[in-house]
Protein backbone atom coordinates (compact mmCIF):
# COMPACT_ATOMS: atom_id res chain seq x y z
CA UNK A 1 0.00 0.00 0.00
CA UNK A 2 1.48 3.32 -0.99
CA UNK A 3 1.81 5.96 1.63
CA UNK A 4 2.98 9.59 1.60
CA UNK A 5 3.82 9.59 5.28
CA UNK A 6 7.50 9.69 6.26
CA UNK A 7 9.17 9.69 9.69
CA UNK A 8 11.41 12.70 9.36
CA UNK A 9 13.04 15.14 6.96
CA UNK A 10 15.92 12.79 6.07
CA UNK A 11 13.55 9.98 5.13
CA UNK A 12 11.24 12.38 3.27
CA UNK A 13 14.12 13.47 1.01
CA UNK A 14 15.52 9.95 0.47
CA UNK A 15 16.49 9.40 -3.17
CA UNK A 16 15.44 12.89 -4.25
CA UNK A 17 18.62 14.94 -3.83
CA UNK A 18 21.45 15.27 -6.38
CA UNK A 19 24.15 17.82 -7.23
CA UNK A 20 23.02 20.51 -9.68
CA UNK A 21 19.31 20.07 -8.94
CA UNK A 22 16.71 22.82 -8.56
CA UNK A 23 14.81 23.26 -5.30
CA UNK A 24 11.83 25.51 -4.58
CA UNK A 25 11.57 26.53 -0.96
CA UNK A 26 8.48 28.16 0.55
CA UNK A 27 8.44 31.03 3.01
CA UNK A 28 8.61 34.82 3.20
CA UNK A 29 11.63 35.96 5.15
CA UNK A 30 11.82 33.41 7.96
CA UNK A 31 8.03 33.09 8.12
CA UNK A 32 6.66 29.71 7.00
CA UNK A 33 9.99 28.21 5.92
CA UNK A 34 10.52 24.42 5.86
CA UNK A 35 13.09 24.46 8.67
CA UNK A 36 13.49 20.70 9.02
CA UNK A 37 13.89 20.05 5.28
CA UNK A 38 16.46 22.84 4.87
CA UNK A 39 18.44 21.36 7.77
CA UNK A 40 18.29 17.91 6.15
CA UNK A 41 19.54 19.31 2.81
CA UNK A 42 22.41 20.90 4.73
CA UNK A 43 23.30 17.52 6.23
CA UNK A 44 22.95 15.74 2.86
CA UNK A 45 25.56 18.18 1.47
CA UNK A 46 24.30 18.28 -2.14
CA UNK A 47 25.93 21.08 -4.12
CA UNK A 48 25.48 23.38 -7.14
CA UNK A 49 21.86 23.92 -6.21
CA UNK A 50 19.56 26.34 -7.99
CA UNK A 51 17.25 27.56 -5.24
CA UNK A 52 13.98 29.32 -6.03
CA UNK A 53 12.76 31.19 -2.99
CA UNK A 54 11.48 34.72 -2.36
CA UNK A 55 14.37 35.37 0.08
CA UNK A 56 17.52 33.59 1.17
CA UNK A 57 17.17 33.44 4.95
CA UNK A 58 19.64 35.13 7.29
CA UNK A 59 23.27 34.28 7.96
CA UNK A 60 22.64 31.43 10.39
CA UNK A 61 19.04 30.37 9.75
CA UNK A 62 16.79 29.34 6.90
CA UNK A 63 18.40 29.04 3.46
CA UNK A 64 21.37 30.99 4.86
CA UNK A 65 22.73 27.69 6.23
CA UNK A 66 22.89 26.25 2.69
CA UNK A 67 24.81 29.36 1.58
CA UNK A 68 27.18 28.86 4.51
CA UNK A 69 27.65 25.27 3.37
CA UNK A 70 28.61 26.46 -0.13
CA UNK A 71 25.73 24.43 -1.55
CA UNK A 72 23.90 27.09 -3.59
CA UNK A 73 25.14 28.03 -7.07
CA UNK A 74 22.18 30.17 -8.12
CA UNK A 75 19.30 31.95 -6.38
CA UNK A 76 16.06 33.04 -8.05
CA UNK A 77 14.52 35.53 -5.62
CA UNK A 78 12.81 38.92 -5.31
CA UNK A 79 14.68 40.25 -2.26
CA UNK A 80 17.85 39.11 -0.48
CA UNK A 81 18.62 42.14 1.70
CA UNK A 82 18.86 40.37 5.05
CA UNK A 83 21.92 38.25 4.39
CA UNK A 84 25.53 39.48 4.69
CA UNK A 85 27.05 36.18 3.60
CA UNK A 86 24.94 36.39 0.45
CA UNK A 87 26.48 39.75 -0.35
CA UNK A 88 30.04 38.46 0.17
CA UNK A 89 29.50 35.40 -2.02
CA UNK A 90 27.77 37.41 -4.71
CA UNK A 91 30.41 40.13 -4.88
CA UNK A 92 33.11 37.40 -4.98
CA UNK A 93 31.37 35.92 -8.04
CA UNK A 94 30.64 32.63 -6.27
CA UNK A 95 26.89 32.99 -6.45
CA UNK A 96 24.60 33.61 -9.39
CA UNK A 97 21.53 35.73 -8.77
CA UNK A 98 18.35 36.20 -10.78
CA UNK A 99 16.00 38.84 -9.44
CA UNK A 100 12.31 38.49 -10.25
CA UNK A 101 9.63 40.96 -9.22
CA UNK A 102 7.78 39.24 -6.38
CA UNK A 103 4.50 38.96 -8.27
CA UNK A 104 6.27 37.70 -11.38
CA UNK A 105 8.04 35.08 -9.25
CA UNK A 106 4.74 33.93 -7.72
CA UNK A 107 3.01 33.86 -11.11
CA UNK A 108 5.88 32.00 -12.83
CA UNK A 109 5.59 29.31 -10.15
CA UNK A 110 1.78 29.27 -10.38
CA UNK A 111 2.06 28.91 -14.17
CA UNK A 112 4.63 26.13 -13.77
CA UNK A 113 2.31 24.19 -11.51
CA UNK A 114 -0.70 24.78 -13.78
CA UNK A 115 0.92 23.67 -17.05
CA UNK A 116 1.09 27.16 -18.52
CA UNK A 117 4.50 27.64 -20.22
CA UNK A 118 4.52 31.45 -20.31
CA UNK A 119 2.38 34.52 -19.73
CA UNK A 120 2.42 38.27 -20.34
CA UNK A 121 2.56 40.85 -17.55
CA UNK A 122 2.90 44.64 -17.33
CA UNK A 123 5.29 44.26 -14.40
CA UNK A 124 8.84 45.21 -15.34
CA UNK A 125 8.12 46.61 -18.82
CA UNK A 126 10.80 49.18 -19.65
CA UNK A 127 13.11 47.98 -16.85
CA UNK A 128 16.15 45.68 -16.63
CA UNK A 129 13.76 42.81 -15.90
CA UNK A 130 12.35 42.95 -19.44
CA UNK A 131 15.71 42.98 -21.23
CA UNK A 132 15.99 40.20 -23.82
CA UNK A 133 12.35 39.18 -23.35
CA UNK A 134 9.49 39.44 -25.83
CA UNK A 135 7.28 42.51 -25.32
CA UNK A 136 3.86 42.57 -26.93
CA UNK A 137 1.05 45.13 -26.91
CA UNK A 138 -2.47 44.11 -25.91
CA UNK A 139 -5.18 46.77 -26.18
CA UNK A 140 -2.60 49.53 -26.36
CA UNK A 141 -0.48 48.54 -23.35
CA UNK A 142 2.88 46.78 -23.41
CA UNK A 143 3.42 43.48 -21.60
CA UNK A 144 6.56 41.36 -21.17
CA UNK A 145 6.56 37.60 -21.62
CA UNK A 146 7.66 35.63 -18.58
CA UNK A 147 8.32 31.88 -18.56
CA UNK A 148 6.95 29.35 -16.10
CA UNK A 149 9.11 27.98 -13.27
CA UNK A 150 9.20 24.43 -11.98
CA UNK A 151 11.74 22.57 -9.84
CA UNK A 152 13.07 19.05 -9.31
CA UNK A 153 11.84 19.24 -5.73
CA UNK A 154 9.58 21.69 -3.92
CA UNK A 155 9.88 21.87 -0.12
CA UNK A 156 6.98 23.50 1.72
CA UNK A 157 5.89 24.02 5.29
CA UNK A 158 2.29 23.92 6.53
CA UNK A 159 0.62 24.17 9.89
CA UNK A 160 -1.46 21.00 9.69
CA UNK A 161 -1.53 18.10 7.27
CA UNK A 162 -2.82 14.54 6.94
CA UNK A 163 -1.73 11.29 5.28
CA UNK A 164 -3.48 12.29 2.02
CA UNK A 165 -1.10 15.26 1.81
CA UNK A 166 -3.89 17.78 2.43
CA UNK A 167 -2.38 20.94 3.90
CA UNK A 168 -3.58 23.92 5.92
CA UNK A 169 -1.33 26.91 6.49
CA UNK A 170 -1.48 29.43 9.33
CA UNK A 171 -1.75 33.24 8.88
CA UNK A 172 1.01 34.85 6.78
CA UNK A 173 3.10 31.66 6.97
CA UNK A 174 1.10 30.61 3.88
CA UNK A 175 2.86 32.98 1.39
CA UNK A 176 4.70 31.06 -1.37
CA UNK A 177 4.04 27.58 0.06
CA UNK A 178 0.77 26.73 -1.79
CA UNK A 179 2.04 27.76 -5.25
CA UNK A 180 5.36 25.99 -4.77
CA UNK A 181 3.54 22.83 -3.69
CA UNK A 182 2.02 22.71 -7.19
CA UNK A 183 5.28 23.26 -9.10
CA UNK A 184 7.70 20.61 -7.84
CA UNK A 185 8.28 17.44 -9.89
CA UNK A 186 8.22 16.01 -6.37
CA UNK A 187 6.75 18.02 -3.49
CA UNK A 188 7.74 17.34 0.10
CA UNK A 189 5.71 18.94 2.89
CA UNK A 190 6.59 19.31 6.55
CA UNK A 191 3.87 20.14 9.05
CA UNK A 192 3.80 21.31 12.64
CA UNK A 193 0.84 19.09 13.45
CA UNK A 194 0.06 15.82 11.69
CA UNK A 195 -3.64 14.99 12.03
CA UNK A 196 -5.78 11.91 11.46
CA UNK A 197 -7.86 11.63 8.25
CA UNK A 198 -11.07 13.61 8.60
CA UNK A 199 -9.78 16.08 11.15
CA UNK A 200 -9.21 18.85 8.63
CA UNK A 201 -12.26 20.78 7.49
CA UNK A 202 -12.56 19.63 3.86
CA UNK A 203 -13.88 23.03 2.79
CA UNK A 204 -10.87 24.79 4.32
CA UNK A 205 -7.97 22.80 2.84
CA UNK A 206 -5.50 25.16 1.17
CA UNK A 207 -3.39 22.58 -0.70
CA UNK A 208 -5.26 19.45 -1.85
CA UNK A 209 -3.20 16.28 -1.39
CA UNK A 210 -2.68 15.63 -5.11
CA UNK A 211 0.10 18.23 -5.07
CA UNK A 212 1.99 16.61 -2.18
CA UNK A 213 4.09 13.47 -2.63
CA UNK A 214 5.64 13.07 0.81
CA UNK A 215 4.69 14.48 4.21
CA UNK A 216 6.07 14.33 7.75
CA UNK A 217 5.70 16.11 11.06
CA UNK A 218 8.72 18.31 11.79
CA UNK A 219 10.73 17.26 14.84
CA UNK A 220 10.94 20.82 16.21
CA UNK A 221 10.18 24.35 15.11
CA UNK A 222 12.27 27.32 16.08
CA UNK A 223 10.07 29.77 14.09
CA UNK A 224 12.52 32.60 14.50
CA UNK A 225 11.20 36.17 14.11
CA UNK A 226 13.28 38.57 12.02
CA UNK A 227 11.96 41.85 13.43
CA UNK A 228 9.99 41.65 16.65
CA UNK A 229 8.04 44.91 16.58
CA UNK A 230 5.63 45.83 19.37
CA UNK A 231 3.67 48.82 20.63
CA UNK A 232 3.53 49.92 24.27
CA UNK A 233 0.47 49.06 26.26
CA UNK A 234 -1.66 52.11 26.96
CA UNK A 235 -2.00 52.81 30.67
CA UNK A 236 -5.76 52.78 30.14
CA UNK A 237 -5.63 49.25 28.70
CA UNK A 238 -3.65 47.64 31.51
CA UNK A 239 -5.82 46.78 34.44
Amino acid sequence: MSTKLRHDAGQALEGLLFDGMSIMSGGFGLCGIPENLIAAIRIAGVKDLTVISNNCGIDDFGLGILLAGGQIRKMISSYVGENRLFEQLYLAGELELEFNPQGTLAERIRAGGAGIPAFFTATGVGTLVAEGKEVRAFEGRNYVMERALTADVAIVKAWKGDCEGNLVYRKTARNFNPVMATAGAVTVAEVEIFVEPGELDKDAIHTPGIFVDRIFQGAAYEKRIERVTTRPRDASETH
Binding site: Q102, Y169, T172, I225, E226, R227
Partner: peptide, 28 residues
Protein backbone atom coordinates in the same frame (compact mmCIF):
# COMPACT_ATOMS: atom_id res chain seq x y z
CA UNK B 1 4.25 38.63 18.79
CA UNK B 2 3.30 35.68 16.55
CA UNK B 3 6.05 34.33 14.24
CA UNK B 4 3.36 33.33 11.71
CA UNK B 5 2.04 36.90 11.46
CA UNK B 6 4.35 39.46 9.83
CA UNK B 7 4.11 42.28 7.30
CA UNK B 8 6.13 42.68 4.11
CA UNK B 9 8.84 44.46 6.11
CA UNK B 10 9.11 41.27 8.24
CA UNK B 11 7.79 43.11 11.32
CA UNK B 12 5.37 41.36 13.63
CA UNK B 13 1.78 42.65 13.30
CA UNK B 14 -1.74 41.73 14.42
CA UNK B 15 -4.99 40.85 12.69
CA UNK B 16 -8.36 42.63 12.77
CA UNK B 17 -11.86 41.16 12.89
CA UNK B 18 -12.20 41.39 9.10
CA UNK B 19 -8.68 40.27 8.13
CA UNK B 20 -7.96 37.53 5.59
CA UNK B 21 -4.87 35.52 4.60
CA UNK B 22 -3.94 34.21 1.16
CA UNK B 23 -1.04 32.97 -0.95
CA UNK B 24 1.56 35.11 -2.69
CA UNK B 25 -0.08 34.31 -6.05
CA UNK B 26 -3.46 35.57 -4.83
CA UNK B 27 -1.79 38.60 -3.26
CA UNK B 28 -0.22 39.65 -6.53
Amino acid sequence: ADPDLINAGKQTITELAGSSYFSSADSF
